[in-house]
Design a binder for these strands. Structure first.
Lengths: 190, 190
DNA sequence: ACAAAATTAGGACAATCGTCCTAAATTTTA
DNA sequence: TAAAATTTAGGACGATTGTCCTAATTTTGT
């Protein structure tokens, strides 16, 4: 198989496994098995566990950037922000099982004192800056970044509690509350 | 040394290490080294990793129950809830470094598909029920549990974001916002 | 079609994992 | 104080970890 295709397959499976089982709990053998290649082949593409983690983070950064771009198709900032809020519903099943991929990875890497922790947090930064842009467009000026961080935090909390209790009712109620909050924030500045 | 004292010391160090480095990343050797005993001795007190995890969860449940009892010394429900909100400030340094002990453990155990996940989430339940009692005393009736879960989720989100960015300013701003929210919730029903 | 390069498989490696065992040291009991 | 019970140390165990090496296979470039 061509280099890029195998690499991409490895990254894809590693991405899933890191999310579903955690970074530390996922071994080279696990990834190789999932892809269906030998550990030797795996090592030819990624020469250390740090390398594959880096690649997965790159992948997530790119995927997030693409998603944010797609949300830009909406003209209204409040509609864009609504798209963000609704990932909690879109990915409901996986979030209830494994939490938020961004939050859980940064948390794990913080505990491991891993150098890639800050890079993993850059996914948050993509969301933060994009959300801040939307709040800015809604006329919130200097408050925009705070509002963005507030919304990110709310989402993270919902993901943590929804997965702790595997409680769909809670998740839906909190998403509704978040939508109400967004309403308050947008109408206040009209 | 007496049985209970050694056991207690092991539980104490394991509790810290599970919090600081994660459950999976903490080995028997790590705990034994931290306590200053041999692995053999360790194994005499806890015959499996599942056992020591169970003991740590028991310990956290008991510690949480004691903390909630101590907060009951305050007569006003809003003052009690304020005590809960302010753990984010009391444990600020550790939360910014390692996140919330309850949230991060339940999240990790969910990914590991560990049987103890639901037991670990019982610490949340202690907080939830206690908080619901306070909201009930404030006259929120059927909404009490939802309010309790909402507050728990908000706290969890703050812990996740504060540790991801190690941002004290964010943490303090969000705690202030939570106090404002509490004000709104208490004055609405006066 | 042939040489060069890239990809793959499979195993070796030292270290560490959780677990278990035995024997010495210590404490408790009678 | 002697016997019994508990606590401790230290190492053995098979499995698994991340890493690395070699040799075979496949793809690529000419």
């Amino acid at each position: 198989m061509t280099r890029t295709k195998t690499r991409d397959l490895i990254e894809q499976k590693a991405d899933d496994l890191f999310y579903e089982n955690g970074f530390e709990a996922t071994s080279f053998a696990d990834i190789a098995d999932a892809v269906g290649i030998s550990r030797g082949n795996f090592y030819h593409h990624f020469k250390s566990k740090h390398d594959i983690l880096d690649a997965v983070i790159d992948r997530r950064l790119a995927k997030t950037a693409r998603m944010l771009e797609s949300w830009d198709a909406d003209k209204l900032p409040q509609a864009r922000i609504l798209s963000f809020i609704r990932i909690l519903l879109t990915n409901q099943t996986r979030i209830m099982a494994f939490g938020c991929p961004v939050g859980t990875l940064t948390t794990e890497l913080a505990k491991l004192d891993h150098v890639a922790q800050s890079r993993a947090a850059e996914v948050f930064t993509l969301f933060r800056d994009w959300l801040a842009d939307q709040f800015h467009a809604l006329g919130h000026g200097d408050e925009s970044v705070s509002l963005a961080l507030h919304l990110l935090g709310r989402s993270q909390g919902i993901a943590v509690m929804a997965s702790a209790y595997r409680d769909e009712t809670y998740l839906r109620a909190e998403v509704a509350a978040l939508e109400d909050w967004l309403d308050t924030v947008t109408t206040k500045h009209r």
